[in-house]
Amino acid sequence: MAQSEQEILQGLAEIVNEETGVDAADVQLDKSFTEDLDIDSLSMMTIVVNAEEKFGVRIPDDDVKNLTTVGDAVKYIQNAQD
C-alpha cells in the first residue's frame, strides 16, 4: 500500500537516526545524504536495506548512487510502492 510523502520521510528519518545518530528533524527532503548529513557509503547501504524492509520495496545497488538527496529517496520509494 502506498504511503504519503510525509509518512515515508518520517520513516526514513527514523532509519537514518537509528544508524547514524543524525537528528531525525534534520532529515529533510532537500538535504543531501553525503554533503549535509555526512552519511558515508557504508551507512547509506544500511539505510537502503533497512528502507527496503520498512517500505516493502527493492532498491537495486545501481540506483542507490542516484539517490543524492533525502527527497530523491522518498520519491524513489513512493514510485516503487505504486
Partner: peptide, 13 residues
C-alpha cells in the same frame, strides 16, 4: 543474519 535473511541483509560494517 546471512542464514536467516540472506547476504543483502548482512550489515555493511
Amino acid at each position: 543474519v546471512l542464514n536467516e535473511k540472506g547476504p543483502r541483509r548482512v550489515y555493511p560494517l
